[in-house]
């Protein structure tokens, strides 16, 4: 068994990489491009923002992202109501010519936890309008099931608050979510270092989405490679079937034939 025959399918599209990365908070476009490359990601998130009409020389992010190599996943970051999120998705589809959206509706500035009531409203509208909706939500199996029932293409429970680097705070909920829904489960937010990503994948998640863990690292390009390896290692370990945890030792060497 190798990782070559193991692909991620979302809404009928196939991806080889199970790592999705953000494009925010890099020192410059060059560092972003190198980090995306090192991560091996095929899906990259972007934000939708007003063009600064008085600054006409600003470079477009899309000048730096090869759309033959990457699938754009526009987000609705910063939206606090279903209406704002739906408007943002419609604009994103017009700008990016793709139906993929990372839907997030935030409930609180300090925690950036999702407002799940508004999220459900927005998801229902967007699914009806033909979007491929990947919602960022709580690590709540009931919410994830509701989002799946509405027609979302995946569910993206948080591991910990956005940008916190606290890792997977509730692996047991993630396991229950994995048993509850059939659509891909992608841990979105909370990853701090490579082992966090590996833990998410070892739990059986279909993918991991991160931004700050890479762009905020002292060496983002090296951390992007670490995340690439961690996601692959975690996935392979999950598929390999780990040994059960036991309290006492089991010898690895034969007990017979010891000298003396």
């Amino acid at each position: 068994m190798t990782s070559l025959d193991d692909t991620l399918k979302i809404a009928g599209r196939t991806f080889r990489s199970r790592l999705m990365v953000g494009t925010g908070k890099y020192a410059d476009f060059r560092q972003m491009v190198q980090s995306l490359d090192a991560s091996g990601a095929e899906i990259v998130t972007v934000a939708v923002r007003r063009v600064n009409i008085s600054d006409r020389n600003k470079e477009s992010l899309l000048d730096h992202i090869d759309l033959k190599k990457y699938t754009l996943l526009p987000n609705t970051a910063g939206c606090f109501t279903a209406d704002e999120a739906v408007r943002t998705c419609r604009l994103a589809r017009e700008a990016g010519l793709s139906d993929f959206v990372k839907l997030e509706v935030l409930g609180d500035q300090k925690t950036l936890f999702p407002d799940n009531e508004e999220l459900l409203k927005a998801a229902a509208i967007l699914v009806k309008e033909g979007f491929t909706v990947l919602p960022y939500t709580s690590d709540d199996p009931i919410m994830c099931k509701k989002l799946e029932d509405l027609g979302c293409a995946a569910v993206m429970p948080l591991g910990a608050p956005i940008g916190s680097g606290l890792g997977i705070r509730n692996p047991f909920n993630i396991r229950i979510i994995l048993e509850t829904v059939k659509v891909p489960v992608i841990v979105d937010a909370g990853v701090g270092t490579a082992s966090d990503a590996a833990i998410a994948m070892e739990l059986g998640c279909d993918g991991v989405l991160m931004n700050t863990a890479i762009s905020g690292a002292a060496d983002p390009v090296a951390m992007a490679e670490a995340m690439n390896l961690a996601v692959r290692a975690g996935r392979l370990a999950y598929r390999s079937g780990r040994i059960p945890r036991k309290l006492y030792a089991t010898a690895s060497s034969p007990l017979e034939g010891v000298i003396g």
Binding site: G24, R50, L61, L62
Partner: peptide, 10 residues
Amino acid sequence: LEIVWFVGGG
């Protein structure tokens, strides 16, 4: 009128 484009984000 709203005029938007993509910027870096997560």
